[in-house]
Amino acid sequence: MSKTHVATHINGDSYEFLCNTQQTLLDVLRHELDLKGSKEGCATGDCGACSVMMDDRLVCACLVLGVEADGKKIETVEGLSTGSSLDPLQQKFIDLAALQCGICTPGVLVAAKALLEKNKNPSEEEVRFWLAGNLCRCTGYDKIVRAVLEVAAEARNT
């Protein structure tokens, strides 16, 4: 089977890769490009562990084909921090213990960041519905929601 050449931007860097047409973006990120931060919890779009941004749209990387990334801008958890400074969401998750095992955390962070970019002042309900596609089995969501709300509040106050 011949492979397709794909040129894309990931976390601000340009990448080129060859992939089979049926390969998902998640597969490409994890196995071809060795970006293992995006996780696979289901491969069917139900858990959100693979959440990434594609041209400013939040997607499940397991539901996007690798070839669809051609010419697009992809952002993953690996791109959240800049240099040695963490994104405020990353720092708040650590400070408030908003993760236990941490497998859902990359997807939750990417999704939460997407929310805060759209909505600077989300209500608790808006956070809960926005994150409804990101399953977390450890935390019961309480500390995750608090962390997102606190980051939003702090961003508004600075």
């Binding site: 970006l35 293992k36 931060g37 995006s38 993953t76 958890v77 690996e78 959240l80 921090s81 963490l86 990353q90 720092q91 998750f93 650590i94 400070d95 213990a97 993760l99 941490g102 955390t105 990359p106 962070l109």
Partner: peptide
């Protein structure tokens, strides 16, 4: 803060 916190929020944890 937990010692493995940064690894877990940056996608570095294996």
């Amino acid at each position: 803060a937990r010692p493995d916190g940064v690894d877990k929020v940056t996608g570095r944890a294996l």
